[in-house]
Design a protein around this nucleic acid. Structure first.
Length: 419
DNA sequence: TCTGGGGTCCTAGGACCC
DNA sequence: TCTGGGGTCCTAGGACCC
C-alpha cells in the first residue's frame, strides 16, 4: 500500500520586510519595522521606485506590492522606506532551507521566500503533519526570528493555496475533502495561475469564484482559453500531481540580466556599453553553470514603456563574453527603432553542456584565446571581487561596468531572541 | 503608473521542406 | 498560380509565477 503524499508549503510572511526587520533588531536597533507602516522599496532616483515588500500596518493603508513609491507615499505620508539588500535575503533563505532539511530530504526552493517540503512517510519521525508544521513554524520563529505560514495537503497546489489563507504566523490544511468549503468560495483571481488577464477573461464569461471555474464545462474553457483553460479547471478542482523537485535536479533553461537605466539612453554607443555590463554577468554565470548557449536575445523597454525583443540562433554554441556581446550588439542594432531607452536586457537560452571539450574544427585560435581570458577574469573576480577587473571602455563613462552578480551561498548567523 | 528583475511556458504566424 | 496538406523550425509576444 502506498501512502498519499503529504506536502507542506512554507511561505515567509512579508519576506523582504521581515528579514530587514530581523537584521536591524539583531544589529541593536530598537524599532521593529514590522510594527510600523514600512516598506522595502527601490530608489526612485534611479527609476527603480517600486514597493518590493510591505509591513502589516502598511497593508492597512492599502499599499500594494509592485506599486510606485510615489503612490505609496500618497496613501501614507509617514511611511518608512528601507532599501533592499538581496545578499541578506539570500542568506536568510538559505538558513530557512537548512532548518527545513532536518524534517525531510526532499525540499524544493520555489523562490527566495517559498518552498515545498515532501513530508510523505515522515510521520514516524516527527509526528502527524499538523503538529510537525506547528513545531517547524515555532522553531523558525524562535531560532531565525521571522514568521512563516505553512500550508498542508496532498499536493503542491493545495498546500500552496493553504499557506495563503489567514496570515501571518499560521498553519492551515487544505485536504481534498476541504476544497469545497475552504477554496471554492474564494474569488477566481486568488487561484494559482489565474492572473490579471485570465481573471478578466473569466469575468466576461460569468466566472467569478473558484467554484464557478471548477464547475464550468472544461470544453467551454478550452474554447476560450486554450490549454490554459484546462490547466486552471484542473487546479480549481484540486487536481495537480507534480513532484517536489530538489534543487539542482533539473538543469536551468536560460540566464538573463536586465537593468532599468537611471536616464534615457539615446545613442548606440552607450547602449552597447550597458549591454556589455549585462553580458559580463550573464556569460560568467553561464560558465559557472558549465554551459554554452545557442540562442541570444536582447530586450528593449522604451521611455514610453513599449517593450520589444529580438533573438537569434547561433551556428556554434558559445560561452565567451566577447562572442555573446558581439551578437547582443548586432541584435540591438537590428531591433532598435531609435526611441529613448529606459531598460535593456540580455538573455541566453538553449543551453548545452560544455563538459566535452569545445575545441572543434571551427574553433579558431582566437576562440581559444577568448576562453582563456574569460577563465582568468572569472578567477580574478571570484578571488578579489567582481569589480577588480573591468573593461577600459567604461573608464570614460559614468556607467556601471558590471550589472548584477553571481551570488555566493551563505547562511545567516542564527538570530537569538524572540519576536 | 513617478511603474524592478529573474524566471518558465504557450501560441501564432511565417519560412521552408516534402 | 485563382494551387493542398502536413510537418518542423524559428521568431515575437504574451501569459503566469515569485
Amino acid at each position: 500500500m502506498t501512502n498519499k503524499p503529504i506536502i507542506m508549503h512554507i511561505d515567509v510572511n512579508s519576506a523582504f520586510l521581515s528579514w530587514e526587520a530581523c537584521y536591524r533588531l539583531q544589529q541593536g536597533d530598537l524599532l521593529d519595522l514590522r510594527t510600523i507602516p514600512s516598506i522595502v522599496g527601490g530608489n526612485p532616483d534611479t527609476r527603480r521606485g517600486i514597493v518590493l515588500a510591505k509591513s502589516v500596518p502598511a497593508k492597512e493603508f492599502n499599499i500594494k506590492t509592485g506599486e510606485s513609491l510615489y503612490s505609496a507615499l500618497q496613501k501614507c505620508p509617514t511611511l518608512t522606506i528601507v532599501a533592499p539588500r538581496f545578499d541578506l535575503y539570500l542568506k536568510c533563505s538559505n538558513s530557512l532551507i537548512k532548518l527545513l532539511e532536518e524534517y525531510s530530504p526532499s525540499i524544493q526552493r520555489y523562490s527566495i521566500d517559498e518552498c515545498f517540503l515532501d513530508y510523505t512517510n515522515m510521520e514516524q519521525h516527527f509526528g502527524d503533519p499538523l503538529s510537525a508544521a506547528h513545531k517547524i513554524k515555532e522553531r523558525i520563529k524562535n531560532e531565525l526570528g521571522f514568521t512563516v505560514n505553512i500550508g498542508i495537503s496532498n499536493n503542491k497546489l493545495l498546500a500552496k493555496m493553504a499557506s495563503d489563507f489567514q496570515k501571518p504566523d499560521a498553519v492551515h490544511t487544505l485536504y481534498p475533502h476541504e476544497i469545497k468549503e475552504k477554496m471554492w468560495p474564494l474569488p477566481v483571481g486568488d487561484l494559482f495561475m489565474v492572473g490579471r488577464a485570465t481573471k478578466s477573461k473569466l469575468h466576461k464569461l460569468g466566472i467569478f469564484t473558484i467554484k464557478d471555474l471548477a464547475t464550468a464545462d472544461p470544453k467551454f474553457l478550452q474554447k476560450h482559453l486554450k490549454s490554459h483553460g484546462i490547466l486552471i479547471w484542473n487546479l480549481a478542482n484540486g487536481i495537480e500531481n507534480s513532484p517536489v523537485i530538489e534543487e539542482n535536479s533539473t538543469p536551468i533553461k536560460g540566464i538573463g540580466n536586465s537593468t532599468t537605466i537611471p536616464f534615457d539612453v539615446t545613442d548606440r554607443k552607450t547602449a552597447h556599453l550597458i549591454l556589455l555590463s549585462l553580458v559580463e554577468t550573464v556569460s560568467m554565470r553561464l560558465r559557472n553553470e558549465k554551459a554554452c548557449t545557442r540562442l541570444v536575445s536582447i530586450s528593449i523597454r522604451t521611455n514610453e514603456f513599449n517593450n520589444y525583443s529580438h533573438q537569434k540562433k547561433l551556428t556554434t554554441p558559445t560561452d565567451c563574453t566577447n562572442h555573446i556581446f558581439m551578437h547582443a550588439c548586432q541584435l540591438f542594432n537590428e531591433a532598435w527603432k531609435k526611441e529613448p531607452i529606459r531598460k535593456l536586457g540580455v538573455r541566453v537560452s538553449e543551453l548545452s553542456n560544455n563538459n566535452f571539450s569545445q575545441v572543434s574544427l571551427f574553433d579558431s585560435i582566437d576562440t581559444e584565446k577568448q576562453k582563456s581570458i574569460d577563465k582568468t577574469i572569472d578567477e580574478l573576480r571570484l578571488r578579489y571581487g567582481s569589480h577588480t577587473v573591468f573593461r577600459a571602455s567604461f573608464l570614460q563613462s559614468n556607467l556601471k561596468a558590471i550589472t548584477g552578480g553571481v551570488s555566493i551561498e551563505e547562511e545567516l548567523p542564527i538570530i537569538s531572541g524572540k519576536l
